[in-house]
Design a protein around this nucleic acid. Sequence first.
RNA 1: GGAGGAUUCGCAUAGCGGCCGAGUGCGCACGCUUGGAAAGCGUGUAUAGGGAAACCUAUCGAGGGUUCAAAUCCCUCAUCCUCCGCCA
Length: 423
Amino acid sequence: MMIDIKFLRENPDAVRASQKGRGENVDLVDQIIAIDEIKRAAIAEFEALRQEQNTLSKSVGAAKGDEKTALLANAKELADKVKAADSKRAEVEEQTKQLVLQLSNLLDTEAPIGGEEDFVTIEHIGTPRDFAKDGFEPKDHVELGKLLGAIDTERGAKVAGSRSYYLTGAGAMLEFALVNYAIQSALKNGFTPVIPPVLVNPSAMEGTGFLGQAAENVYRIERDDVYLVGTSEVPLAAMHMDEILPADKLPMRYAGYSSCFRREAGTYGKDTRGIIRVHQFDKVEMFSFCKPEDAKEEHKRLLQWEKDFLNAMEIPYRVIDVASGDLGSSATRKFDIEAWIPTQGAYREVTSTSNCTEFQARRLNIRYKDADGTKAIATLNGTLVAIPRMIVAILENHQNADGTVNVPAALQPFLGKAKLELV
RNA sequence: GGAGGAUUCGCAUAGCGGCCGAGUGCGCACGCUUGGAAAGCGUGUAUAGGGAAACCUAUCGAGGGUUCAAAUCCCUCAUCCUCCGCCA
């Protein structure tokens, strides 16, 4: 399930409003309410018959002789009825489940309503550099990557097709430095570092909500019925699938480092140059399990840690509150951080944090337990660093007239140098 | 890829057609006992669904089958362990 069916039964208007805000199917709500009633009737009927059968079966065991023969005849007839009622119940339950799975998460009432363009800018941090004042035209990351021997997109395309690349020399070292710095900050903030599987089974994919509208962007290995994850959010969320977590351990925070795979279907014209949009990249992802009542606070914390990272990289950026139509089915609210990319004269998404409330947890059957019993848990995720886009931002923002690039102070200990030199 | 074994309530196990939602030990919680603690004693200790409630229903890796009745019998699948092969 995703939305709590009891909640839906009692607050159908709230669910309708949410679906409408996302630009998704509103009628679904009424279809579900209708079939839910049929389902409950079917359950009641099955259970009544089953109860009768259980009682009768017990008396068969105790009876002897003629009495037993007579009871057996009755019991046989009843068994058929039970079987019929049971398959009816199973059928209706499955139909209900399929419909409920189509519902997206309930929108946060504070999330802006609208499409991709209707985001609200929350703040700007830092000032885009004035290259005119510095007296040179900025080079883009592709050119810088070549001069530094850091990025090789031509050979990437030769070997693996479009949207593929090699990180070499300083580029590869930059990745290691970024990952090490990210993991070190995550450790400070109470995260457990994780290297998760990137090849997962359908239930993990389904549970995290990536087989809905997002399915087009997922690589599937048909022969073995497994998927390549587009983010370590998937294995991190599914890690506790079918588990009950102890309340006193919450929040549980994981920092996953993994490769991410995206088909990028339907983006043919977009970002064809460089490594802004690629089929494979590495990323450090924050993931948190917490009590639903703490989720909003946790979301703010994730956002703050993302900001801390950008600040440490000394890159100007803005924070946006993503609008309802552009949220993804799991998220109730999403904040993106967009870094300033000088050669594009634009802010481009580098990290993103979503509050999924109980949506994923309900589908993955993850709960927590305290003194009062077991309850729904909330999940949240946020990018600490997505390597290629961060490399783009660093190269372009910190370049010098000769093509060398200054290394942000925070990265210098990890990279062992203050400047990337030409090769 | 081939052969065998396993999968039961947090953990370890018992159960091999009805008296089993399930016994025992450990663990855990509460209480008694104690100057305090340990030991001892007692009680409790899954999850989900339906119902206003009493209560009922489901779940012994998953799914199907046999049967009036399945943890127990049969089939399929998954995972783990051991051995063989292959690869590193």
